[in-house]
Write a protein that binds this DNA or RNA. Sequence first.
DNA 1: CAAAGTTTGAAACATTATAACATTTGCGGA
DNA 2: TCCGCAAATGTTATAATGTTTCAAACTTTG
Lengths: 163, 163
Amino acid sequence: MPEHALPYRPHNHQACVTQALADARSICRQANARLTPIRERVLELIWQSHKPLGAYDILAKLGSDGHSSAPPTVYRALDFLLQYGLIHRIASLNAFVGCAHAGERHRGTFLICRTCGTVLELTMPDLMQAIETAARTEAFQPDDVTLEVAGLCPQCQGDHHHD
Amino acid sequence: MPEHALPYRPHNHQACVTQALADARSICRQANARLTPIRERVLELIWQSHKPLGAYDILAKLGSDGHSSAPPTVYRALDFLLQYGLIHRIASLNAFVGCAHAGERHRGTFLICRTCGTVLELTMPDLMQAIETAARTEAFQPDDVTLEVAGLCPQCQGDHHHD
DNA sequence: CAAAGTTTGAAACATTATAACATTTGCGGA
DNA sequence: TCCGCAAATGTTATAATGTTTCAAACTTTG
Ligand SMILES: [Zn+2]
Ligand SMILES: [Zn+2]
Ligand SMILES: [Zn+2]
Ligand SMILES: [Zn+2]
């Protein structure tokens, strides 16, 4: 199995979180953008696992922090994190997941396990290029691509006792 | 411009609708599925244009038919039409559009104009194959692909006076 | 016709997202 | 330092999208 299929296997996930937060701080510093406590906390919550989190899940977790809030607080933090490429929105799930390639200019492809919910983000520049080329062939000017693949992750294949 | 980029240009759209309904009847007959009046009416409403329609838009149009209904009526009809491949759900818009290739086994790629809302459905078997192969390379078993490209359609490029 | 299965009706509810406006906070210039 | 602005957050309400549940009507089949 390729090395970057990490999320499916037991791994030191705290390292993912730490890395993501460090990257985020660095990216925001360079962009002169303010990674405020709320924004950082939302990012950290999203990174609690490799399963996308809904806005209201985040809201609930903020609540159990004691740090109670309303939906706009969360959506504003999410907008910020999206804007700086620190998270991705998974359109087919209405949920958000940490970007595994923050700082690299890229378009993500997401492999979404129907059983366990885990998402693996791939970058496939050649494929994305081919998609954009196909769009231009129709005289269409592409500016955003949503590419999400639903199915079964390696761990969940053959498991007939779903969790 | 390729011939199948029809939706962008003026065309005899009634022919699209008529064809879609005829195809639907034929497909349902063969599958021994019941294309009831409600289901057919919802399909017809979706085909009123090449712009995806939200479930509640459909509900409102059913209402102005006099034929008043509640959300489950619409969602049930949509589920049926999805099941038989007569429509597609556009995940990035939470909306539904008629399938331009009903009856052909395919996965659609959707070019969505941000300005006018028109959607063109392409089939790109080689690209889809490449995507699935990439997924399998990660030991992932794909069973559904969402591929949606947002941007500007040919008609809307250079238009700075949006409708 | 009677039984069983499918489709529709209807009411309530759940989830996801935004609008509008008030308040606070951070930051640069007088 | 302190004023003034812009950005960020708080607060309330509301909009938009989707589901659950149970009852009634209709279809199919024996
Ligand atoms: Zn991890
Ligand atoms: Zn990413
Ligand atoms: Zn048409
Ligand atoms: Zn199609």
